[in-house]
Simulated scan of single mutants.
Amino acid sequence: MKFQDNQHFSHKHILNALKLDIGEEIDCNACENPITDPLHGCNSCHYYLHDECLNTPRSLQHICHPSHPLTLLPNPTYSSRSFSCNACGSEGNAFSFSCAHCEFDLHIHCAKLPAKILIDKHPHELNLLFNSPYKDENVVFVCDECHGTANRDNWVYYCSQCDFGTHSNCATGNLTRKEGSSSSQTRKEDLMSSTARKIEEIEAYNEAQEKLMAARLKAQISVQGRRAALDLIDGGSHRKYYYY
């Protein structure tokens, strides 16, 4: 598939159609999630976008915020240089759909969430809700995926028939970048943790095998000792001798 070079409003240089090298890991400067082919980017600035993010519309009229249209911003305009997403509650440092009048902000992937979704852990469709499904303010929403809580005004996917619900990010697998670390770094840490667990499992298995072998050897020595004692008692009458 051939892609044309693009001059995107978020970057001063032309973004060229690129292809990832095998094993290469980079994050999208728009949504902060890992990039898979195809993508556009500027290698000199290390600026890269999913093609889907590249083609995100400049404005959006979202059902969750009907009073004003949301404008696509390449960077947060707050003094902190970050924003808190009104959908998932996570911090964002890159693209957002924003309403300056209301200080309302969404990650671009949150703004595109489907109204209904199916996940492996539940047989029914989950509906997207823009706030807690519980009317009682004293009842806290607990995610059935990660078992964490959600604020009352965070978006959740919910099945009212089963009282089953998840954070929007847990249902879709969107993982926003943590402050001070990239998703690739997080994946490396997960890999190191997984490797450490495997080493511990191997060491535990080897230790168990050594204990088992020691127990067998001890049992064999005990059996041989008993046989030797019997030989001394009965003068070896139970033995069979062979003469050649």
Score class of each variant (00 low, 15 high):
S160I: 00
Y78H: 13
H122F: 09
D144R: 13
T71C: 09
F95W: 15
R177E: 13
C170T: 03
I119P: 04
S90F: 15
I119A: 06
C162W: 04
D163K: 15
T77H: 06
T149L: 01
S96C: 15
A150Q: 12
E137P: 07
E125N: 11
C146P: 03
N169S: 11
E137K: 10
L126C: 04
F130Q: 05
W155Y: 02
D120S: 14
N154T: 07
D105Y: 14
F130K: 07
G165P: 12
L175K: 14
K116P: 00
S90N: 12
T172M: 10
N169L: 13
H167K: 04
S98N: 13
K178I: 13
F141G: 03
F97L: 09
S181E: 13
N131V: 00
L128W: 06
C102R: 06
F97N: 03
L113F: 05
A150L: 14
T149H: 04
G92C: 09
G165C: 11
A111L: 02
L118F: 14
K112G: 01
L106Y: 11
D153W: 08
L106H: 06
K116T: 12
E103I: 09
S160D: 10
S132W: 01
C110R: 11
V140G: 02
S98Q: 10
R177L: 11
N127F: 07
G89D: 00
V142E: 05
S79V: 12
L73W: 02
S183C: 11
D120V: 06
V140W: 02
T71R: 13
L118Q: 09
N174C: 07
C102D: 15
S181G: 00
S90Q: 15
T77W: 02
V142G: 01
K121D: 10
E103A: 13
Y158N: 04
Y158F: 15
Y158T: 00
D105F: 09
N127V: 07
P74I: 10
C143G: 07
P114K: 10
P76S: 06
